[in-house]
Amino acid sequence: MTEKGDVYVLDEPTTGLHLADVSTLLGLLDRLVDSGKTVIVIEHHQAVMAHADWIIDMGPGAGHDGGAVVFEGTPAALVDDASTLTGQHLKEYVGR
Rank of each mutant, 00 (worst) to 15 (best):
V70S: 10
L19C: 08
V22T: 00
A50E: 13
H44M: 09
L28I: 02
A76R: 14
G59W: 01
M49H: 04
M49V: 13
H18Q: 03
D30S: 05
H45M: 07
D80F: 01
G16D: 04
G59V: 06
V22R: 00
G36K: 04
L78Q: 05
D65Q: 13
T38K: 00
V41W: 13
T24K: 03
D53S: 10
Q46R: 01
L78I: 03
V33R: 11
D53K: 04
L29V: 09
H64W: 10
L25P: 03
F71H: 04
G67W: 10
H45R: 01
W54E: 15
H64M: 03
E72A: 15
G36F: 09
A77W: 08
P75H: 09
G63W: 06
D34P: 02
V39L: 07
I42V: 15
I42S: 13
V33S: 11
G63A: 14
D21S: 03
L17D: 02
I55G: 07
P75L: 08
D80L: 09
G16H: 04
V41M: 14
S23E: 15
S23K: 01
I55K: 07
D57G: 11
L25C: 14
L28S: 00
L29Y: 07
G36Q: 08
M49F: 06
G27Y: 06
E72F: 05
A68N: 12
V69N: 03
L19Y: 14
G36T: 09
L25S: 10
L78T: 03
L32Y: 00
P60C: 10
G36A: 12
L25I: 02
A76Q: 15
I56P: 05
G66K: 06
T74N: 12
K37E: 13
E43K: 00
G59M: 03
G67Q: 10
V69P: 01
E43P: 04
G16N: 07
M58P: 02
A52C: 12
L19V: 15
I42F: 11
L78V: 03
G73M: 12
M49K: 04
G66D: 07
V48T: 15
V69S: 06
H64P: 00
S23C: 07
L25M: 11
A77F: 09
L25Q: 01
A47L: 09
M49L: 15
L29R: 01
I55L: 15
V70H: 05
D57F: 10
A77G: 13
G61C: 03
G61P: 00
H45K: 03
G63E: 13
V48M: 14
K37H: 15
D65H: 11
G73R: 04
A50K: 07
A62I: 07
G66P: 03
M49R: 00
P60H: 01
M49G: 08
M58L: 15
H64Y: 07
V22P: 01
G27E: 07
D65F: 08
T24F: 09
T38G: 09
S23I: 03
D30Q: 00
L29K: 06
D80P: 02
I42Y: 11
M58I: 14
V33M: 02
